[in-house]
Design a protein around this nucleic acid. Structure first.
Lengths: 164, 164
DNA sequence: CTTATCTAGGACTGAATGAGTCCTTGATCG
DNA sequence: CGATCAAGGACTCATTCAGTCCTAGATAAG
């Protein structure tokens, strides 16, 4: 539980690949598929979703492919994961608040929701550019985790809604 | 995706209940089941796991029940979730590093692993006592999210392994 | 000692979801 | 026209979650 889907994983790999391996040039789904041994049909759909979500730009036809539609540092991992897998949900109660008539039970959900938002903000603070750095090198640790409480606790609209 | 299991949810509710509703006294699975409208057999197993994991102490027989085996502030949400749902995994690659012979792909996993650990530490920083506070009141926001990067980036043994 | 009340725990079923395959359509370049 | 590549729907298979059923022990009250 609490794990990333493979599709989201594939998406992040692809985004990172496009950010680092190609200098603004496009890469086809097949290229990425072969480079990381990812099943082509699945990767295709992941890339399609990313394109539909506005993170990637697609070019059809021969020598077509995908490229980042924005600078890598302007694409957060949260955004990527959400466009692929849909909204991130910690407990089911957040969405259907109707069936939740248990007054006492809901006192539990509130602090849990904070945890949830903390995770979202953590993901929102990490961009594809951050991931594109060498994994073993000096990661932007200070950047990732040095968020101010005010930021982390800001109203939910900090986190844009996914269109999925 | 990235969502809490219902069982983990039930477990957190129960732990919180035991921390706040009873003053060191025990509550039976039935009590909690009725208070929050949770199916009894399921809740039973959740509580059994928590007892087996050392978070709860069980008393059999008439008027038996469960109680926290430790002060609520010494039980982290991470520990609770792990004993119920087993190890938390972000991508499958963390465990079976054998099948991961794709040199390039693994450069992606490293930063992802940081994200993963950040989430773990976020959960580790929140105790049952924190959740026991009134949800709408002055939550310990500053405590939850004001972790130092050094703490967050400490070697993995900060996070104890679950026995599940 | 008997009975009611609890915990302990295994076995099983159904629903949901994730992962992956197959097939078709349409755009673009040579 | 033909090769290449994106777009996308339909479908199967495996895994996992949620929940039910049933049985066995432990303990206290009567």
């Amino acid at each position: 539980m609490l794990k990333l889907t493979k599709k989201a994983d594939y998406g992040l790999i692809s985004l990172r690949h496009l950010a680092v391996a190609t200098n603004g040039r496009s890469a086809s789904a097949k290229d990425i598929s072969e480079a990381y041994h990812i099943p082509l049909p699945i990767l295709s759909k992941v890339l399609q979703k990313l394109a539909k979500g506005g993170l990637l730009t697609s070019e059809q036809g021969t020598n077509g492919g995908y490229r980042l539609s924005r600078p890598a540092q302007d694409i957060s991992t949260l955004e990527a994961i959400r466009t692929i897998d849909g909204p991130i949900i910690l407990t089911a109660c957040f969405t259907d608040h109707a069936g939740c008539n248990q007054s006492e039970a809901c006192t539990v959900r509130e602090p849990l929701r904070r945890v949830h938002e903390g995770i979202l903000r953590l993901l929102a603070s990490i961009s594809i550019a951050d991931m594109a750095r060498d994994g073993s090198g000096p990661l932007p640790e200070h950047k990732i985790f040095q968020l101010q409480p005010a930021q982390l606790m800001a109203p939910a609209h900090l986190v844009p809604a996914a269109k999925g």
